[in-house]
Design a protein around this nucleic acid. Structure first.
Length: 350
DNA sequence: CTAGTCTTCAGTCGTTTTGT
DNA sequence: ACAAAACGACTGAAGACTAG
C-alpha cells in the first residue's frame, strides 16, 4: 500500500491533522467543535481557532498545528500561552510520553492523532499518554537515488559493496553528504531493488550491473555539474609531467584512461581534487582559469580508502563514466576497453 | 538502562518560474 | 531585463528507537 503524495499542500495537511486529533479526542469526551480560521491569528503563529462545547462548557483555543512537536514548538507555545488571552492548543501527529510530560509540566495543552491529550480547562481535565503513533502513511521521498547527491552514496557502494553494512553516519561522512541523505537514498535503493534489507541480518547490494549502468548514465547530468570547481587551460601535455599527490587529487577521464590502457591520446583532462587543496593544485599544475579550457577540476566525493581508485587515478567506474559522458568515437572505444578490462569482472552476475 | 543507530523535518540555500 | 516569489534539494540537530 504505497501512498504516493499526489499533492503537497501544507494547509490541507494541517487541517487533516487537526481534524484527526479532534476526532480522536471525541472518543475520550463528548465534544462538539467548529474550526475558526482566523487570518489575523495566522500572523502570530497560530493556524486557527477551535470553539468547542464540552458538557455545556464553551472553550476557545488558539491552535498550533504541527507535523511534529519539538522542543522549539513547546517553548514557543509556552510563550504564546502566557501572553494570549485564550489558551494555546497544540495539535500534532504524535506526542511521545516524554514530550507529554514536559508539556503537562509547562501547562501547555495538546492533542494528537494517536489519542494522546492534555486538556486542562477546569472543571474539564484530560491527560492521556502512552498511545503509540499510527504507522506513518506519509512518505516523502525527498532524496532520489539517480538525481543529485544520492549518486555519491551509490558510487561509494558500487566501489565498495562491503560498506553496505556500515552505520549511516559513516557512510554520510565518507560520501560527503548529510545523514538524512543516506537514509533517503537507502530507502530509494531498497524500494528499487538495489539493496536487499534483511533486517537484523544486515543488507546486501543487488543488481549491481543494472545499478552501475544507471549510475553511469545519471552521473554526468545529475551530479557532475554540482561538483565542478572550475575549468582551466594548461600548456601542451602538461599532465604528462605532473606527479599527483593522491591526497590532493586523482586523474579521471581521458588522462586516467590513457594511463590505464596506454591507448588514448587525451584531448581533455579531468581532475578530482580535495576541495581544500584545490587552489594548490591549480598553482602546481600552472593552470589558467578559462571557462572554455579543456581541463575540468571536480570535487572529490569519496574518502581516501582502499578500493576507491588505486594510485593516481580514480576508480575505473568513474573513468568509464567520464569517457561515456564525452561520448565521441575515440573515447567510446577506450570506454569499452576500460569496461571490459577493469569493470566487467567485478560485475558479472549477482 | 543506555549507547549506538536511525528517522524526522524545519530551516537554509540555490534554482526556476512568474510578475512587473 | 530585472526582481520577487515559489519551488525543491539538502542539511543537520534533536528526538525516537532498539539491541544487548
Amino acid at each position: 500500500m504505497n501512498k504516493n503524495n499526489f499533492e503537497h499542500n501544507p494547509a490541507a495537511e494541517n487541517e487533516t491533522i487537526l481534524r484527526q486529533a479532534l476526532n480522536t479526542l471525541k472518543g475520550l469526551v463528548p465534544l462538539e467543535y467548529e474550526l475558526g480560521p482566523d487570518p489575523s491569528l495566522r500572523e502570530q503563529g497560530y493556524d486557527c481557532t477551535v470553539r468547542a462545547q464540552v458538557f455545556g462548557l464553551q472553550i476557545v483555543w488558539r491552535v498550533q498545528v504541527r507535523n511534529r512537536c519539538t522542543r522549539a514548538t513547546e517553548t514557543l507555545a509556552q510563550i504564546d500561552n502566557d501572553k494570549a488571552q485564550s489558551p494555546v492548543l497544540i495539535a500534532t501527529r504524535y506526542v511521545s510520553p516524554e514530550a507529554a510530560a514536559r508539556l503537562h509540566a509547562r501547562g501547555i495543552q495538546f492533542i494528537d492523532t494517536a489519542g494522546n491529550a492534555f486538556i486542562n480547562q477546569p472543571p474539564l481535565f484530560i491527560f492521556v499518554t502512552g498511545n503509540r503513533p499510527k504507522k506513518a502513511e506519509t512518505t516523502v521521498p525527498a532524496v532520489r537515488l539517480f538525481k543529485g547527491v544520492g549518486l555519491k552514496i551509490a558510487y561509494l557502494l558500487l566501489c565498495r559493496p562491503d560498506l553496505i553494512g556500515r552505520p549511516y553516519r559513516e557512510l554520510a561522512e565518507m560520501a560527503h553528504v548529510a545523514l538524512g541523505t543516506v537514509n533517503g537514498t537507502m530507502m530509494d535503493m531498497i524500494r528499487k531493488g538495489f539493496v536487499l534489507d534483511m533486517g537484523t541480518r544486515g543488507k546486501m547490494l543487488r543488481e549491481t550491473k543494472a545499478l552501475l549502468d544507471r549510475w553511469v548514465t545519471a552521473y554526468p547530468d545529475a551530479l557532475k555539474p554540482k561538483i565542478l570547481l572550475g575549468r582551466f587551460q594548461g600548456d601542451g601535455n602538461w599532465w604528462d609531467d605532473i606527479r599527483l599527490d593522491q591526497a590532493v587529487a586523482q586523474w579521471g577521464g581521458e588522462v586516467a584512461a590513457a594511463k590505464l590502457t596506454g591507448y588514448l591520446k587525451p584531448g581533455t583532462v579531468t581532475l578530482y581534487a580535495d576541495k581544500n587543496r584545490f587552489a594548490d593544485l591549480v598553482i602546481a599544475c600552472k593552470l589558467k582559469k578559462d571557462p572554455r579550457g579543456n581541463v575540468e577540476i571536480l570535487e572529490r566525493f569519496w574518502p581516501p580508502i582502499e578500493g576507491l581508485g588505486e594510485g593516481d587515478t580514480v576508480h575505473p567506474i568513474l573513468i568509464y563514466a567520464d569517457l561515456v559522458a564525452i561520448g565521441d568515437q575515440r573515447t567510446m572505444e577506450t570506454a569499452r576497453m576500460i569496461h571490459a578490462d577493469f569493470i566487467d569482472r567485478h560485475f558479472g552476475q549477482d
